[in-house]
Every structure is written in structure tokens, then in C-alpha cells.
Design a binder for these strands. Sequence first.
DNA 1: TGTTTATATGAGTATATGTGCATATATGTA
DNA 2: TACATATATGCACATATACTCATATAAACA
Lengths: 102, 102
Amino acid sequence: MDDSNYIDLDEETLFLVSQTFKALSDPTRIRILNLLFNREFSVNEISEHLHLRQSTVSHQLRFLKNLRLVKFRREGTSIYYSHDDEHVLNVLNETIQHALHH
Amino acid sequence: MDDSNYIDLDEETLFLVSQTFKALSDPTRIRILNLLFNREFSVNEISEHLHLRQSTVSHQLRFLKNLRLVKFRREGTSIYYSHDDEHVLNVLNETIQHALHH
DNA sequence: TGTTTATATGAGTATATGTGCATATATGTA
DNA sequence: TACATATATGCACATATACTCATATAAACA
């Protein structure tokens, strides 16, 4: 391979990149991240706003939490989630804008 | 919803965005797009460079072609593929760089 | 402690996805 | 036309994924 800026991706990078995009490849997760764009929401609030079952939201939040795309804080019995990765959120937002205007 | 820049995503946008990221969520497709970053390659060349079966490459190229992420031209019996979406390629490249340096 | 409310999790299920084999299609050439 | 080479495609199969129900866990409060 004689192309100067070709980078042969190692397995770890490949896995991390694919996992990141996998997080953004599901409509439900996109809706959740899009909702969290401006401010935090509790699990129930997300569930109500997006008309999703509580367990569905919880499962997807665990997915996003494992990838460190969201963070949370407890307040009484509620748990408030907010986004935690500027880069990924920018990528998502750019692509949404791109889709909306094309 | 009183948050000014919250956008309730319509189904079509949601589908397009999720499909775009789905294209980038598979290691094989990432490797192919990454290979095509600098120049075009035939199906066989891709197959040899990445050590993938010809049918696997062909299947994935069809996927990428349907999303208009790659284009192709015929030359004799060979078909040369190259990338065809600057935005998506930028997003992929940014995320690869982000993963490599963090 | 017992009850209520909020969230997390395990199991089951239906569907989606990625790959490989075998084969079809298409182009070039003898 | 017959044959070789390159690519595409249908089918089968194993695995991954997203969702739902039921239930577990955790905090607040009477």
C-alpha cells in the first residue's frame, strides 16, 4: 500500500469506532440523545416525552451509559440523564442537520 | 416541550440518519470506506487488501451503494469503487482520529 | 417496618444482520 | 461460440439486536 495517508486500522480502534456508530444507528437511541441535547431528563420523563416503555428507555440508557455517551445523577428516587460526549453529539447533530436540509 | 432548539425528528429523517450510522457501525464496512479514502479500488483489490471473501465485499458494497456512500465505474470486467459522500467520510475520519488519539 | 414510586435487569421472542457457498451474470478474448 | 475472469446475487445459517413482560432493587416516607 503506497498511499501516504492510508491508515490500517487496528482491531481496538475498529471496535471502538464501530461501537460508537452502532449507538447512533438505532432510531430510539437517536431520539433519546436528541432529547438530551439541551438538558437532562429523568427516565420517566424520557419515557413520556418519546412514548416509550420505561424498560425500553432503561435498556437503551444502559447501552449509552456503557459507551459513556450519557451520564446521570440521582435525585431522590429519580435518576436524571444528560449527554456526556461532545464529539459524538456534534457528529449526530451535524448528520441530523445534513439529513434535514438535503 | 419548551426547549427552543429541540427538534422533534420526523420518521423519514430518523430513518435516514439511523441508516447512515448503520453503514458506519460495521467493522468490515468501516475498513472498506477507510481503504477507499484516498483512491478507487476494484472489488478484487478490496478483497485482497482486506483479506475478505469476494462475496462479502460485494454484499457490503451493495449496502454502501444503496446509501449512495460509494460510486463505481466499469473498466473491462473489473468494477472500480470510490467514495461518494464527503460528509459521511468526514464524520468517519473525524471519529477514527478521535478514537486513535484518546 | 410496610408501602409507594422510580429505575434496573433477566428471560423470552421476533426480527435484523453479516457471512459463506454455490451459482448467475457480464465482459473480454481465442 | 466456447472459455476465462470479475462481479453480483439468492439462499441458508449463526449471531446480534430491540423490545416486552415480569420482577428485582433502591429510595422516600408514613
